[in-house]
Computed example of a mutant assay.
Amino acid sequence: MLLNIKELAAKEHAVPITGQVDLSSTLNGRKDVLTFGPLQLNLRASHVGGVVEVDGTMDLELEQSCSRCLGPAKQSLHIPFRELFTQQPDTIDGDESEDMHLVTEDKVDLLPYVVENVLVELPYVPLCKSDCPGLCPTCGHDRNEGECGCKEDNIDPRLAGLADFFKQ
Results as ranks from 00 to 15, higher is better:
residue 50 G to T: 01
residue 118 V to W: 12
residue 107 K to R: 13
residue 79 I to T: 08
residue 52 V to F: 05
residue 155 I to F: 09
residue 2 L to N: 09
residue 137 P to H: 13
residue 29 G to P: 12
residue 162 L to H: 05
residue 64 Q to S: 02
residue 120 V to Q: 12
residue 165 F to R: 08
residue 112 P to K: 15
residue 18 T to E: 15
residue 91 T to Q: 02
residue 13 H to M: 02
residue 40 Q to C: 02
residue 133 P to C: 04
residue 111 L to V: 06
residue 107 K to T: 14
residue 19 G to H: 10
residue 46 S to H: 11
residue 91 T to I: 01
residue 6 K to T: 15
residue 44 R to Q: 13
residue 158 R to N: 10
residue 93 D to L: 05
residue 86 T to L: 00
residue 43 L to Q: 04
residue 63 E to Y: 01
residue 85 F to G: 09
residue 96 E to C: 06
residue 151 K to A: 15
residue 108 V to R: 14
residue 14 A to V: 09
residue 22 D to N: 13
residue 80 P to N: 08
residue 44 R to A: 12
residue 64 Q to F: 00
residue 7 E to N: 15
residue 141 H to D: 13
residue 167 K to F: 06
residue 55 D to N: 10
residue 128 C to N: 05
residue 118 V to T: 10
residue 91 T to S: 01
residue 167 K to C: 06
residue 32 D to K: 10
residue 87 Q to V: 03
residue 49 G to H: 09
residue 127 L to N: 07
residue 142 D to W: 06
residue 84 L to G: 04
residue 63 E to R: 13
residue 37 G to W: 00
residue 141 H to T: 15
residue 118 V to Y: 12
residue 72 P to R: 08
residue 62 L to Q: 06
residue 132 C to G: 08
residue 102 L to H: 05
residue 30 R to V: 10
residue 113 Y to G: 06
residue 137 P to I: 15
residue 27 L to I: 14
residue 16 P to N: 11
residue 154 N to V: 08
residue 40 Q to M: 07
residue 136 C to Q: 11
residue 102 L to Y: 05
residue 1 M to C: 01
residue 102 L to D: 13
residue 99 D to W: 07
residue 6 K to P: 13
residue 136 C to N: 11
residue 19 G to I: 02
residue 32 D to Q: 11
residue 43 L to V: 03
residue 34 L to K: 03
residue 149 G to K: 15
residue 29 G to N: 03
residue 125 V to A: 08
residue 9 A to C: 03
residue 100 M to F: 08
residue 32 D to F: 00
residue 7 E to G: 07
residue 79 I to W: 00
residue 38 P to R: 03
residue 39 L to I: 11
residue 136 C to F: 06
residue 62 L to N: 07
residue 27 L to S: 07
